[in-house]
């Protein structure tokens, strides 16, 4: 898993536990961080807004990866849970006057509890039942968002204020970028560390063989619930950030399409790795954007075929998911590790 470069040896537990072990790793990480911080100063508004959406997707996808990748439970309701977080956060800030800094984690908590309510019955049974229960959560929650109009304003949409932290209002892309960046980094660090704790290892054991895990004393029910709780919490945070970014939320944002996008993100990125979720989220946000630009420029040449190209976009999207599953089942993350290993071992690649 963690392949160290030749000549680097861990001689103490402290060294062994370090996330970023070698100077090269640390320098490249620092360089990457600097690049991320410099990004909005260089990029134009369109690119920065894309980056914000990528960041929000990263948080959601990492959350789903904790449930699906670490613990091996499938959720087809992640999009609806993101929606719950969005609505709760929006209502807390607007109606109850809760400051954003408290409303965001609170939205995460509420979402996690809603998630538990739906996940609880299915966790008693092994197998694919959680997938189906989350599907029904998706349908039921979306119905509530649509029809409980006294609270959610239904399809006409709920206006949301820009978040304010200690008097500073994040009301443009430039400042919001840093907010999302900070939250995303925290989320990633937590997930990466979770993987190495007792909880994370227990989840991995459940994923790989639940019977064996139970035999060595892992409480299946408890750890599956923990995974589901943390995953829904992430979804709630992502929803909160999304709501305060777009400032008008409607139930259409949180349909099953969204859930599928998240699932596709972690599969394309690489199941069970934090980096994979990041790569997958980037891929999933940029792919429709690229396809859209492509279809826009093409429909400029051939008018009246807009519908054709938008449908073509679906076909390509579906096809890409299928091709990934057949030809790159371990995702972008695996490919990235292969590339790294290639350079590390070059020119003696055997």
């Amino acid at each position: 898993m963690n392949r160290l470069p030749s000549g680097v040896f861990n001689t103490s537990y402290q060294q062994d536990a370090q996330l970023f072990r070698t100077p090269v790793q640390r320098i490249s990480l620092a360089a990457f961080l600097v690049a991320l911080i410099a990004f909005p100063f260089v990029g134009n508004a369109y690119v920065v807004s894309l980056a914000i959406i990528v960041g929000i997707y990263v948080i959601g996808a990492v959350g789903l990866n904790i449930l699906t990748g670490f613990a091996g439970q499938i959720s087809i309701g992640h999009g609806a849970f993101v929606g719950v977080g969005a609505y709760v956060s929006a209502i807390l800030v607007a109606e109850a006057g809760v400051p954003f800094l408290i409303a965001m984690p609170l939205a995460g908590l509420v979402t996690a509890c809603v998630g538990l309510g739906f996940g609880l019955p299915s966790l008693r049974v092994k197998g694919l039942y959680l997938a189906i229960a989350t599907l029904s959560a998706q349908v039921i929650l979306n119905y509530i968002m649509n029809n409980w109009s006294s609270v959610t304003k239904g399809t006409s949409g709920l206006p949301v204020d820009s978040p304010e932290i200690l008097g500073f209002v994040f009301n443009n892309d430039f400042s919001y970028y840093f907010l999302v960046l900070a939250v995303a980094i925290l989320a990633l660090l937590f997930a990466r560390n979770l993987q190495r704790t007792r909880i994370g290892r227990a989840m991995t054991a459940i994923r790989d063989n639940d019977l064996a895990a139970e035999l060595i004393g892992i409480n299946l029910f408890r750890y599956k619930l923990t995974a589901f709780f943390i995953s829904s919490f992430y979804a709630g945070i992502a929803g909160s950030l999304w709501a305060h970014y777009v400032t008008l939320i409607t139930p259409e944002h949180f349909t099953i399409v969204e859930s599928i996008n998240y699932l596709a993100a972690i599969i394309i990125g690489g199941i069970g790795s934090v980096l994979g979720a990041v790569l997958g989220a980037v891929f999933m946000v940029l792919l429709p954007e690229v396809l859209r630009l492509l279809s826009d420029s093409l429909s400029g040449i051939f008018p009246n075929v807009g519908l054709f190209f938008s449908a073509m976009k679906d076909v390509i999207f579906g096809l890409i998911i299928i091709l990934f599953l057949i030809y790159e089942p371990r995702g972008l993350n695996h490919r990235w590790q292969m590339i790294k290993a290639y350079w590390k071992l070059w020119p003696f690649s055997y």
């Binding site: 679906d314 076909v315 999207f317 579906g318 599953l325």
Partner: peptide, 8 residues
């Protein structure tokens, strides 16, 4: 993925 593609 198949369902998205077939619908398209």
């Amino acid at each position: 993925g198949l369902s998205i593609m077939l619908r398209g």
